[in-house]
Protein backbone atom coordinates (compact mmCIF):
# COMPACT_ATOMS: atom_id res chain seq x y z
CA UNK A 1 0.00 0.00 0.00
CA UNK A 2 2.19 2.86 -1.20
CA UNK A 3 -0.41 5.47 -0.25
CA UNK A 4 -0.18 4.61 3.43
CA UNK A 5 2.53 7.21 3.92
CA UNK A 6 0.08 9.94 3.08
CA UNK A 7 -2.16 9.02 5.97
CA UNK A 8 0.04 10.29 8.77
CA UNK A 9 1.44 13.78 8.95
CA UNK A 10 5.13 13.57 8.24
CA UNK A 11 7.24 15.24 10.94
CA UNK A 12 9.80 17.77 9.79
CA UNK A 13 10.25 18.87 6.18
CA UNK A 14 8.09 16.94 3.73
CA UNK A 15 10.14 14.84 1.32
CA UNK A 16 9.56 15.83 -2.28
CA UNK A 17 8.34 12.40 -3.32
CA UNK A 18 5.71 12.40 -0.57
CA UNK A 19 4.41 15.81 -1.60
CA UNK A 20 4.28 14.62 -5.21
CA UNK A 21 2.26 11.59 -4.15
CA UNK A 22 -0.07 13.79 -2.14
CA UNK A 23 -0.71 16.03 -5.12
CA UNK A 24 -1.14 13.15 -7.55
CA UNK A 25 -3.58 11.41 -5.23
CA UNK A 26 -5.66 14.53 -4.68
CA UNK A 27 -5.59 15.36 -8.35
CA UNK A 28 -7.14 11.93 -8.82
CA UNK A 29 -9.90 12.78 -6.27
CA UNK A 30 -10.53 16.03 -8.12
CA UNK A 31 -10.79 14.11 -11.38
CA UNK A 32 -13.35 11.76 -9.80
CA UNK A 33 -15.32 14.78 -8.58
CA UNK A 34 -15.22 16.21 -12.10
CA UNK A 35 -16.37 12.97 -13.74
CA UNK A 36 -19.11 12.36 -11.16
CA UNK A 37 -20.54 15.78 -11.87
CA UNK A 38 -20.60 14.95 -15.56
CA UNK A 39 -23.45 12.56 -14.79
CA UNK A 40 -25.57 15.45 -13.54
CA UNK A 41 -25.04 17.76 -16.53
CA UNK A 42 -28.73 18.48 -16.81
CA UNK A 43 -28.62 20.24 -13.44
CA UNK A 44 -26.34 22.88 -14.86
CA UNK A 45 -28.71 23.93 -17.59
CA UNK A 46 -31.37 24.55 -14.98
CA UNK A 47 -28.63 26.18 -12.90
CA UNK A 48 -28.00 28.90 -15.49
CA UNK A 49 -31.70 29.75 -15.61
CA UNK A 50 -31.87 29.70 -11.82
CA UNK A 51 -28.98 32.11 -11.37
CA UNK A 52 -30.45 34.38 -14.00
CA UNK A 53 -33.77 34.46 -12.13
CA UNK A 54 -32.02 35.11 -8.80
CA UNK A 55 -30.07 38.05 -10.12
CA UNK A 56 -33.16 39.40 -11.89
CA UNK A 57 -35.21 39.26 -8.71
CA UNK A 58 -32.50 41.00 -6.72
CA UNK A 59 -32.15 43.54 -9.51
CA UNK A 60 -35.77 44.57 -8.97
CA UNK A 61 -35.53 44.48 -5.20
CA UNK A 62 -32.51 46.80 -5.32
CA UNK A 63 -34.13 49.03 -7.88
CA UNK A 64 -37.01 49.52 -5.47
CA UNK A 65 -34.53 50.19 -2.67
CA UNK A 66 -32.69 52.86 -4.65
CA UNK A 67 -35.91 54.58 -5.65
CA UNK A 68 -35.58 57.04 -2.78
CA UNK A 69 -31.79 57.48 -2.62
CA UNK A 70 -28.95 57.89 -5.12
CA UNK A 71 -26.24 56.39 -2.95
CA UNK A 72 -26.36 54.20 0.15
CA UNK A 73 -23.27 53.54 2.24
CA UNK A 74 -20.93 54.55 -0.58
CA UNK A 75 -22.60 52.36 -3.21
CA UNK A 76 -24.52 53.91 -6.09
CA UNK A 77 -26.97 51.71 -7.99
CA UNK A 78 -24.53 50.77 -10.77
CA UNK A 79 -21.88 49.71 -8.26
CA UNK A 80 -24.35 47.81 -6.19
CA UNK A 81 -25.76 45.99 -9.20
CA UNK A 82 -22.25 44.86 -10.13
CA UNK A 83 -21.67 43.85 -6.52
CA UNK A 84 -24.79 41.67 -6.51
CA UNK A 85 -24.52 40.30 -10.06
CA UNK A 86 -20.85 39.34 -9.93
CA UNK A 87 -21.38 38.16 -6.36
CA UNK A 88 -23.86 35.57 -7.63
CA UNK A 89 -21.60 34.64 -10.54
CA UNK A 90 -18.73 33.80 -8.20
CA UNK A 91 -21.10 31.99 -5.87
CA UNK A 92 -21.69 29.47 -8.66
CA UNK A 93 -17.97 28.73 -8.40
CA UNK A 94 -17.15 28.66 -4.68
CA UNK A 95 -20.38 26.92 -3.70
CA UNK A 96 -20.23 23.20 -2.91
CA UNK A 97 -22.25 20.41 -1.33
CA UNK A 98 -19.70 18.73 0.91
CA UNK A 99 -22.08 18.91 3.88
CA UNK A 100 -24.91 17.22 1.98
CA UNK A 101 -22.57 14.63 0.50
CA UNK A 102 -21.36 13.72 3.97
CA UNK A 103 -24.94 13.51 5.24
CA UNK A 104 -25.90 11.14 2.42
CA UNK A 105 -22.83 8.99 3.07
CA UNK A 106 -24.06 8.59 6.63
CA UNK A 107 -27.72 7.98 5.74
CA UNK A 108 -26.84 5.38 3.13
CA UNK A 109 -24.29 3.70 5.40
CA UNK A 110 -21.44 4.21 2.95
CA UNK A 111 -19.32 6.10 5.41
CA UNK A 112 -17.41 2.93 6.28
CA UNK A 113 -15.88 3.13 2.79
CA UNK A 114 -14.52 6.58 3.59
CA UNK A 115 -13.19 5.46 6.95
CA UNK A 116 -11.06 2.66 5.55
CA UNK A 117 -9.28 4.97 3.11
CA UNK A 118 -5.80 5.83 4.35
CA UNK A 119 -6.11 9.52 3.57
CA UNK A 120 -7.21 12.69 5.31
CA UNK A 121 -10.94 12.66 4.73
CA UNK A 122 -11.28 16.43 4.67
CA UNK A 123 -8.66 16.84 1.96
CA UNK A 124 -10.35 14.11 -0.06
CA UNK A 125 -13.73 15.88 0.09
CA UNK A 126 -12.18 19.26 -0.69
CA UNK A 127 -10.28 17.81 -3.66
CA UNK A 128 -13.45 16.26 -5.03
CA UNK A 129 -15.30 19.53 -4.58
CA UNK A 130 -12.48 21.28 -6.43
CA UNK A 131 -13.00 18.92 -9.37
CA UNK A 132 -16.67 19.82 -9.32
CA UNK A 133 -15.81 23.50 -9.20
CA UNK A 134 -13.72 23.19 -12.37
CA UNK A 135 -16.70 21.57 -14.03
CA UNK A 136 -19.06 24.28 -12.84
CA UNK A 137 -16.67 26.98 -14.03
CA UNK A 138 -17.12 25.77 -17.60
CA UNK A 139 -20.80 24.80 -17.53
CA UNK A 140 -22.29 27.24 -15.08
CA UNK A 141 -20.09 30.17 -14.10
CA UNK A 142 -18.92 31.24 -17.57
CA UNK A 143 -22.32 30.91 -19.33
CA UNK A 144 -24.08 32.66 -16.44
CA UNK A 145 -21.53 35.46 -16.52
CA UNK A 146 -21.97 35.90 -20.28
CA UNK A 147 -25.74 36.14 -20.02
CA UNK A 148 -25.73 38.46 -17.02
CA UNK A 149 -23.16 40.81 -18.56
CA UNK A 150 -25.25 40.96 -21.74
CA UNK A 151 -28.56 41.63 -20.03
CA UNK A 152 -27.57 43.84 -17.10
CA UNK A 153 -25.19 46.82 -17.10
CA UNK A 154 -22.57 45.10 -14.93
CA UNK A 155 -19.16 46.75 -14.72
CA UNK A 156 -15.93 45.07 -15.76
CA UNK A 157 -13.23 44.58 -13.11
CA UNK A 158 -11.44 47.73 -12.00
CA UNK A 159 -8.07 46.61 -13.43
CA UNK A 160 -6.40 43.54 -14.94
CA UNK A 161 -4.09 43.09 -11.96
CA UNK A 162 -7.10 43.53 -9.70
CA UNK A 163 -8.90 40.82 -11.65
CA UNK A 164 -6.06 38.34 -11.09
CA UNK A 165 -6.06 39.14 -7.34
CA UNK A 166 -9.84 38.70 -7.40
CA UNK A 167 -9.43 35.21 -8.90
CA UNK A 168 -6.95 34.25 -6.18
CA UNK A 169 -9.33 35.57 -3.57
CA UNK A 170 -12.17 33.41 -4.97
CA UNK A 171 -9.89 30.39 -4.67
CA UNK A 172 -9.56 31.16 -0.97
CA UNK A 173 -13.34 31.70 -0.72
CA UNK A 174 -13.83 28.24 -2.15
CA UNK A 175 -11.56 26.75 0.52
CA UNK A 176 -13.35 28.65 3.31
CA UNK A 177 -16.77 27.44 2.14
CA UNK A 178 -15.44 23.90 1.69
CA UNK A 179 -14.02 23.90 5.22
CA UNK A 180 -17.23 25.29 6.74
CA UNK A 181 -19.32 22.72 4.86
CA UNK A 182 -17.08 19.88 5.95
CA UNK A 183 -17.24 21.01 9.59
CA UNK A 184 -21.04 21.29 9.46
CA UNK A 185 -21.29 17.99 7.60
CA UNK A 186 -19.45 16.11 10.36
CA UNK A 187 -22.49 16.67 12.59
CA UNK A 188 -24.34 14.21 10.37
CA UNK A 189 -22.38 11.49 12.14
CA UNK A 190 -23.84 12.30 15.52
CA UNK A 191 -27.27 13.66 14.69
CA UNK A 192 -30.27 11.90 13.26
CA UNK A 193 -30.85 14.52 10.60
CA UNK A 194 -28.91 17.66 9.81
CA UNK A 195 -31.40 19.08 7.33
CA UNK A 196 -32.38 21.85 9.75
CA UNK A 197 -28.77 22.66 10.49
CA UNK A 198 -27.99 22.88 6.76
CA UNK A 199 -30.90 25.23 6.21
CA UNK A 200 -29.75 27.52 9.00
CA UNK A 201 -26.20 27.46 7.61
CA UNK A 202 -27.55 28.29 4.15
CA UNK A 203 -29.28 31.46 5.36
CA UNK A 204 -26.33 32.32 7.59
CA UNK A 205 -23.87 32.22 4.69
CA UNK A 206 -26.24 34.05 2.35
CA UNK A 207 -26.63 36.95 4.75
CA UNK A 208 -23.26 37.21 6.49
CA UNK A 209 -21.03 36.43 3.51
CA UNK A 210 -22.14 39.68 1.93
CA UNK A 211 -23.88 37.93 -0.95
CA UNK A 212 -27.20 39.69 -0.35
CA UNK A 213 -25.84 43.07 0.66
CA UNK A 214 -22.47 44.70 1.42
CA UNK A 215 -21.28 44.50 5.01
CA UNK A 216 -21.33 48.30 5.31
CA UNK A 217 -25.14 48.12 5.28
CA UNK A 218 -25.14 46.32 8.62
CA UNK A 219 -25.47 48.31 11.85
CA UNK A 220 -22.11 49.34 13.24
CA UNK A 221 -22.10 46.94 16.15
CA UNK A 222 -22.98 44.00 13.89
CA UNK A 223 -20.12 44.92 11.55
CA UNK A 224 -17.71 44.89 14.48
CA UNK A 225 -18.81 41.42 15.50
CA UNK A 226 -18.83 40.06 11.94
CA UNK A 227 -15.24 41.28 11.50
CA UNK A 228 -14.19 38.46 13.78
CA UNK A 229 -16.01 35.80 11.77
CA UNK A 230 -15.00 34.06 8.55
CA UNK A 231 -18.22 34.71 6.62
CA UNK A 232 -17.50 38.07 4.98
CA UNK A 233 -14.28 36.64 3.57
CA UNK A 234 -16.37 34.42 1.29
CA UNK A 235 -18.09 37.03 -0.87
CA UNK A 236 -17.66 40.56 0.45
CA UNK A 237 -13.85 40.66 0.29
CA UNK A 238 -13.50 39.23 -3.25
CA UNK A 239 -16.19 41.66 -4.43
CA UNK A 240 -14.40 44.65 -2.89
CA UNK A 241 -11.29 43.54 -4.78
CA UNK A 242 -13.31 43.24 -8.00
CA UNK A 243 -14.71 46.73 -7.57
CA UNK A 244 -11.23 48.10 -6.84
CA UNK A 245 -12.16 49.23 -3.33
CA UNK A 246 -9.27 47.47 -1.59
CA UNK A 247 -5.69 48.64 -2.08
CA UNK A 248 -2.17 48.16 -0.75
CA UNK A 249 -1.85 47.10 2.85
CA UNK A 250 -5.63 46.64 3.27
CA UNK A 251 -5.68 44.22 0.37
CA UNK A 252 -2.76 42.20 1.72
CA UNK A 253 -4.32 42.16 5.17
CA UNK A 254 -7.73 41.01 3.87
CA UNK A 255 -6.23 38.15 1.87
CA UNK A 256 -3.98 37.24 4.79
CA UNK A 257 -7.09 36.86 6.96
CA UNK A 258 -8.65 34.73 4.21
CA UNK A 259 -5.66 32.39 4.42
CA UNK A 260 -5.90 32.40 8.21
CA UNK A 261 -9.55 31.31 8.06
CA UNK A 262 -8.80 28.54 5.58
CA UNK A 263 -6.22 27.08 7.96
CA UNK A 264 -8.27 27.66 11.11
CA UNK A 265 -11.50 26.24 9.71
CA UNK A 266 -9.76 23.19 8.30
CA UNK A 267 -8.18 22.56 11.71
CA UNK A 268 -11.64 22.85 13.29
CA UNK A 269 -13.08 20.47 10.67
CA UNK A 270 -10.30 18.00 11.38
CA UNK A 271 -10.99 18.18 15.11
CA UNK A 272 -14.72 17.73 14.59
CA UNK A 273 -14.11 14.76 12.33
CA UNK A 274 -11.96 13.09 14.99
CA UNK A 275 -14.57 13.81 17.65
CA UNK A 276 -17.40 12.48 15.46
CA UNK A 277 -15.65 9.29 14.46
CA UNK A 278 -14.57 8.65 18.05
CA UNK A 279 -17.84 6.94 18.75
CA UNK A 280 -19.59 5.81 15.61
CA UNK A 281 -22.25 3.34 14.69
CA UNK A 282 -22.56 2.57 10.98
CA UNK A 283 -26.09 1.77 9.95
CA UNK A 284 -26.18 -1.24 7.67
CA UNK A 285 -23.85 -0.44 4.82
Amino acid sequence: MPQMEVARPVPGPVPASSLWKFLRLHFEFARVGFVNTLAYRLRYYTGIVTYFIYVSVYYFIWKAIYEHSASIEGFDFAHLLTYIGVGWIIRSLYFNNIDQDLAYQVIEGRLAMDLIKPVNIQFMYVARAAGEAVFRLALLTVPTALILFLVYPLRLPASFGGFLTFLMSIGLSFLIVAAINFAVGTFALRLQSILGLLRAKFFLLELFSGLLLPMTFFPHIAQKILDFMPFQYISYIPMLIYLGKLHGIDLVRAMGIQVFWVVALMAIGDGLWRWSTGKLIIQGG
Partner: peptide, 10 residues
Amino acid sequence: VLFTKIPRLQ
Protein backbone atom coordinates in the same frame (compact mmCIF):
# COMPACT_ATOMS: atom_id res chain seq x y z
CA VAL B 1 -30.83 45.23 7.86
CA LEU B 2 -32.08 47.03 4.79
CA PHE B 3 -34.74 49.01 6.60
CA THR B 4 -32.09 50.48 8.89
CA LYS B 5 -30.91 52.33 5.76
CA ILE B 6 -34.10 53.09 3.82
CA PRO B 7 -37.50 54.41 4.97
CA ARG B 8 -39.70 52.57 2.46
CA LEU B 9 -39.52 49.87 -0.19
CA GLN B 10 -41.26 51.57 -3.11
